[in-house]
Simulated assay, not measured.
Amino acid sequence: MSVIQVNGIDLYYKIQGSGENESLLLIAGFDSDSSTWAAMMRSLVQQYQVIRFDNRGIGQSSAPDSPYSIKQMAADAVALLDYLNISQVHVAGHSMGGQIAQELALAHPEKIQSLILFSSWAKGDGKFNSLIELFGDLTQKLEGALYQRVLLPWLFTDAFYSTPGIMEQLINWIEDYPFPPTPHGLYHQSRAILGSDTSDRLADIHGPTLVMVGKDDIVTPIRFSEQLAQGIPNAELVILEQGGHAFVVESADTVAKVMLDFLEKHKQGT
């Protein structure tokens, strides 16, 4: 297990792939740790040194019972890159991880070789904020496994649900997972989401950027990604025809292919 102490917490991370390749940092979203990317790893590690980590409040990283911010979690990611002596990196963030990736790019543009924002947003609207507030409040009301099951219909499509046996497998995995989140960790993550807004700073993100969303995403609808793509200079928008909010799990192979095609265009020397 690889853990470093940064910004007053223990931060868990994992590196796979050849160190001779360019580096790719993956940042997970709310209620998600580094295992979120597992289905994509086989494709990614063939071409990149892939760095995954658990945000504060989740997985094997510390979950202090005090307020978090998206900028703070971006600072955690930067501290990890500095510890690993990585001066430039491709960065991909999913959902809340996309918020973190935006703040990382804004604070340290010199470190960002390219940016990928999955199912993310600049500023939530009233409905979205109400939903995230509810997700945070429910952590105090529901037992852990039941809480996770309540979230699942928001994350996956009808097609995924209709695949024989898939939801049973997913629920069993959740119930057996050895590093379940703490209620207070999730609560503080939810409030960090609500406190973040990059809408008036998107024009300051100048690196190559891919914005991607699933057509059936009911948590972060297409208009959120359209706002990102319109606000970030020269950003590329891809709408996946089949995919919900958790399309990095549900449609992992398709997402990985789009991701790798984008990254190939922005390797050093190309």
Score class of each variant (00 low, 15 high):
247 F>M: 03
151 L>F: 03
247 F>G: 03
210 L>D: 09
159 A>W: 07
150 V>Q: 13
167 M>I: 15
230 Q>Y: 06
208 P>S: 01
134 L>P: 00
163 T>V: 00
183 P>V: 07
211 V>G: 02
256 A>Q: 11
107 A>Y: 07
136 G>E: 04
203 A>I: 13
231 G>S: 09
67 P>N: 14
139 T>W: 00
146 L>E: 14
236 E>H: 12
194 L>C: 04
53 F>I: 10
144 G>Q: 04
69 S>C: 13
129 N>H: 00
83 Y>P: 10
258 V>K: 09
148 Q>I: 04
75 A>Q: 13
140 Q>W: 12
9 I>C: 06
235 A>W: 01
243 G>P: 11
148 Q>F: 01
128 F>M: 08
44 L>W: 12
231 G>Y: 06
71 K>E: 15
9 I>V: 13
189 Q>Y: 04
165 G>V: 13
40 M>R: 12
2 S>D: 04
41 M>S: 11
220 T>E: 09
15 I>N: 06
269 G>F: 14
102 Q>L: 01
169 Q>V: 09
259 M>V: 05
137 D>Y: 09
29 G>P: 05
63 A>P: 00
269 G>A: 15
124 G>A: 04
85 N>W: 03
121 W>I: 01
126 G>N: 12
99 Q>P: 02
179 F>V: 00
64 P>M: 12
94 H>A: 14
214 G>Q: 11
237 L>T: 05
186 L>R: 07
105 A>K: 03
53 F>E: 12
156 F>S: 02
85 N>H: 11
157 T>F: 01
250 E>G: 10
17 G>D: 14
43 S>L: 01
139 T>Y: 00
165 G>F: 05
218 I>R: 01
238 V>P: 09
52 R>W: 08
6 V>F: 10
194 L>I: 04
241 E>Q: 13
107 A>M: 15
69 S>E: 09
247 F>E: 02
75 A>W: 10
219 V>I: 11
106 L>R: 10
24 L>P: 04
72 Q>W: 09
156 F>D: 03
178 P>F: 11
2 S>I: 07
65 D>V: 08
62 S>L: 07
240 L>D: 10
166 I>L: 09
223 R>P: 00
25 L>M: 14
123 K>M: 02
169 Q>M: 15
84 L>T: 15
270 T>Y: 15
109 P>A: 13
199 S>M: 12
182 T>Q: 00
270 T>G: 15
54 D>V: 00
105 A>F: 03
63 A>D: 00
246 A>T: 06
87 S>M: 06
110 E>P: 12
32 S>F: 12
167 M>Y: 07
159 A>L: 14
112 I>Q: 11
253 D>I: 10
125 D>F: 09
133 E>G: 05
208 P>H: 06
228 L>N: 08
7 N>R: 11
189 Q>D: 08
138 L>V: 08
37 W>F: 13
197 D>E: 06
84 L>F: 02
217 D>K: 05
72 Q>R: 13
237 L>N: 05
87 S>T: 14
131 L>N: 04
20 E>G: 03
